[in-house]
């Protein structure tokens, strides 16, 4: 039997849950935590943050990874329902495709608490806590324009189309950048949030447009891929700005590579979702509106050192 790494990690996660020390659990039941692949440290931080807070509050946890596959996500909802989860903490696999499984969980009496990505319906999930991507993208774009000296040819790497966050960040970038007529976008391509795809796209974009001065990326994993391609081509003069606030990009900023990124408070968002789930299970209400925005913070060489695992120390 062969097992992919992903399945192995999932199996490990399940095994870890099954082996979880009963001393920790105060019998408040099971909380299912479902996110995209932990290959992206952003989603790993969410899962770790949610799991830690859930255990502190006395829940058992099951941590699952849907790999941005709606079918897989649907199966995981069935698993959570079958296992009698008390609540589901979810970073979802698509704004449209996720409506049905969240509804199915609701019909089974299991409330869902969404983080990071929205779904296109309200009134089904109990909470949707998302980063203020538009505000964050504007911060990143302002820094990008300043670094570019308000002029020059640049490239935009866009995220996965099915994800609302890809569109909103692009729109936030352009609402700022397009005010500067000397900023010229020579290529705009989706690398689907992926590091390897961003590397390949950046390579070919560089061949077609050797004179580019800057790259603005919809997330940090694509920024890391693009930076590797720029380094390989000896083009470390290119100004690169990302989005997420990962430790990888932090290290690159400190070394003078990538210039800036925008921190989403992912760790806190995940913890907050668990706290709201706990509150909801105890009282029947979170005391908050369903959809909640959390502001993002610009990270550059002045504050990069204070960044650790998607949280900024004071």
């Amino acid at each position: 039997m062969t097992m992919t790494r992903r399945e192995f990690v999932s199996a490990l996660a399940v095994a870890a849950c099954l082996l979880a020390s009963p001393a920790l659990a105060q019998d408040k039941g099971l909380m299912a935590i479902i996110t995209p692949s932990h290959d992206n440290p952003f989603f790993k931080a969410e899962a770790v943050g949610a799991e830690k807070r859930a255990k502190e509050l006395g829940y058992d946890t099951i941590v699952l990874v849907h790999d941005d596959d709606p079918n897989k996500q649907s199966e995981m909802f069935d698993t959570a329902i079958a296992r009698g989860a008390k609540a589901i903490i979810l970073d979802n696999a698509g704004a449209d495709a996720t409506v049905a499984p969240v509804q199915r969980a609701k019909d089974a009496g299991i409330p869902s608490f969404l983080i990071d990505r929205e779904i296109k319906e309200s009134g089904i999930a109990i909470s949707q806590i998302v980063s203020n991507n538009y505000q964050g993208a504007q911060l990143g774009a302002e820094k990008f324009v300043e670094l570019m000296g308000e002029e020059g040819p640049y490239v935009e790497l866009v995220g996965r189309e099915a994800d609302t966050n890809a569109g909103i960040r692009s729109s936030g970038y352009h609402d700022i950048i397009d005010q500067y007529p000397d900023m010229k976008m020579v290529a705009q391509q989706s690398a689907n949030w992926s590091q390897t795809e961003a590397y390949e796209k950046m390579e070919s974009i560089l061949q077609a447009n050797p004179k580019i001065k800057g790259v603005i990326s919809g997330n940090d994993t694509m920024a890391m891929g693009a930076w590797a391609a720029l380094e390989a081509a000896g083009r470390t003069d290119v100004i690169l700005v990302g989005f997420d606030g990962s430790n990888d990009v932090r290290d690159s900023i400190i070394k003078g590579g990538i210039k800036a990124t925008v921190l989403q408070p992912a760790y806190r968002e995940a913890q907050l979702a668990v706290e709201q789930a706990d509150q909801y299970l105890k009282t029947g209400s979170t005391g908050q509106q369903e959809k909640q925005l959390m502001d993002c913070i610009l990270i550059d060489e002045t504050n990069a050192k204070a960044l650790e695992t998607f949280a900024l120390s004071e």
């Binding site: 704004a95 929205e118 296109k120 309200s122 949707q128 998302v130 203020n132 991507n133 538009y134 505000q135 504007q138 609302t164 966050n165 569109g167 909103i168 729109s171 936030g172 609402d175 700022i176 509106q289 369903e290 959809k291 909640q292 925005l293």
Partner: peptide, 25 residues
């Protein structure tokens, strides 16, 4: 005009009532 001050200052406007961040922006 930059920012979301006007929108966010209005008590009658709730993000939950809008489709997504794009519409809300």
């Amino acid at each position: 005009i930059r920012g979301t001050a006007l929108r966010d200052a209005m008590p009658f406007i709730n993000f939950t009532d809008f489709r997504d961040q794009i519409e809300f922006a």
